[in-house]
C-alpha cells in the first residue's frame, strides 16, 4: 500500500515538473523540451526518493551528486530543483533571460543544487568519474549519478570516461542513458548509431540494467540493484520517449530544441492538467 501511494506521489511531482518545463520554455521562447520531458521520471525518482540532498545546504559535502551530462536538458533539472526547494519556483520564469541564474545550460556557480556545469556533451561524464574517485579516496559513502543522452554518447570523451570508471571500480557511480532515440538531426540510429549500447557498456566493464525510463517501479528497482553491485559502475539504459507527456511533441526530433509557442504551451498544459 505504501509503495502505491509513494508511486502516486512521484507521479504527481513528475506531472508538476512537466508543467513547469512547458511553462518556463514558453516564457523563455527558446530551449530544449524534448530531452527534458523524456528524463522527468528519472530526475523525479532521484531527487524525491533516492538522493541524499539538503536544499537548505546545497554544498553539503556528504550529499549525493548529480551531473546532467546532457546539459541542454537544463529545464528538467531546474524544474526538479525548484520543486525540491533549492530555489523559488517563480524563478523558473527567468530561464535564459539576461541576469538570470538559470542559464541556457546549467552553471554550478550560479544555481544552488547544480553540482557541475555542463552543456558541452561528454564533459559531464568525466566530471562524474572525478567525483566518484574523490569519494572513494576520502572513504565517503556519497553516490554520484549521471544522466547521459543517447546522442551524447557519440562523443569520444564518454568512452574515455566509461573506461576509467570501470578501471577504478567505481561502484559509487550510477549512470542513466536517456535512450529516447532522437538527436537534433534525426533518429540516432540514422545519424550515427551507437548501438548495441548494452553490449558496448558491458564490454567497457559496466553492470548494465535495461528499464522503462518512465516507470517508477523499474527505476527504483534498477537503483537498488546498482547499489548492490560491487566493484563496477552501473549503466541504467532507460527506454524513454522524447517529448513524453505532450502528444504533439512525442517522438518528434523537431522538438529537440524548439520552445512551444503560447497556444502550443496552453494545449500542452491542458494535456498535463
Amino acid at each position: 500500500m505504501e509503495q502505491i501511494s509513494n508511486e502516486k506521489k512521484l507521479q504527481e511531482i513528475a506531472r508538476q515538473i512537466r508543467r513547469n518545463i512547458i511553462t518556463m520554455l514558453a516564457e523563455a521562447g527558446s530551449g530544449h523540451p524534448g530531452g527534458s520531458l523524456s528524463a522527468v521520471e528519472i530526475l523525479t525518482a532521484l531527487y524525491f526518493q533516492e538522493m541524499r540532498v539538503d536544499p537548505a545546504n546545497p554544498q553539503w559535502p556528504e550529499r549525493d551528486r548529480f551531473v546532467l551530462g546532457k546539459g541542454h536538458a537544463a529545464p528538467v533539472l531546474y524544474a526538479t530543483l525548484a520543486e525540491k526547494g533549492f530555489f523559488p519556483r517563480e524563478e523558473l520564469l527567468t530561464l535564459r533571460k539576461i541576469n538570470s541564474r538559470l542559464q541556457g545550460h546549467p552553471d554550478m556557480r550560479k544555481v544552488p543544487g547544480v553540482d557541475m556545469s555542463t552543456g558541452s556533451l561528454g564533459q559531464g561524464f568525466s566530471a562524474s568519474v572525478g567525483m566518484a574517485l574523490a569519494g572513494k579516496m576520502d572513504k565517503k559513502d556519497y553516490r554520484v549519478y549521471l544522466l547521459l543522452g543517447d546522442g551524447e554518447i557519440q562523443e569520444g570523451q564518454v568512452w574515455e570516461g566509461a573506461m576509467a570508471a570501470a578501471h577504478y571500480k567505481l561502484d559509487n557511480l550510477t549512470a542513466f542513458l536517456d535512450h529516447n532515440g532522437l538527436q537534433i538531426d534525426g533518429p540516432v540510429q540514422e545519424v550515427m548509431s551507437p548501438e548495441p549500447v548494452v553490449d558496448k557498456f558491458k564490454a567497457f566493464g559496466w553492470h548494465v540494467e535495461q528499464i522503462d525510463g518512465h516507470s517508477f517501479t523499474q527505476i527504483t528497482r534498477a537503483l537498488e540493484i546498482a547499489k548492490s553491485i560491487k566493484d563496477k559502475p552501473t549503466m541504467i539504459i532507460a527506454e524513454t520517449v522524447k517529448g513524453k507527456g505532450v502528444s504533439f511533441m512525442e517522438n518528434e526530433a523537431g522538438w529537440h530544441g524548439t520552445a512551444p509557442k503560447k497556444d502550443q504551451a496552453a494545449q500542452a498544459l491542458e494535456e498535463l492538467a
Binding site: G122, S126, A127, V129, G130, M131
Partner: peptide, 23 residues
C-alpha cells in the same frame, strides 16, 4: 595519484570532478 591512460579530455574532466569534490 590517478593515471587515466592516453585520454587527455578525460584527464582534465576527471580533474575538474575531483576539484568539485574538494580536491
Amino acid at each position: 595519484f590517478i593515471n587515466v591512460g592516453i585520454a587527455e579530455q578525460n584527464l582534465l574532466g576527471i580533474a575538474a570532478g575531483m576539484a568539485a569534490s574538494g580536491k
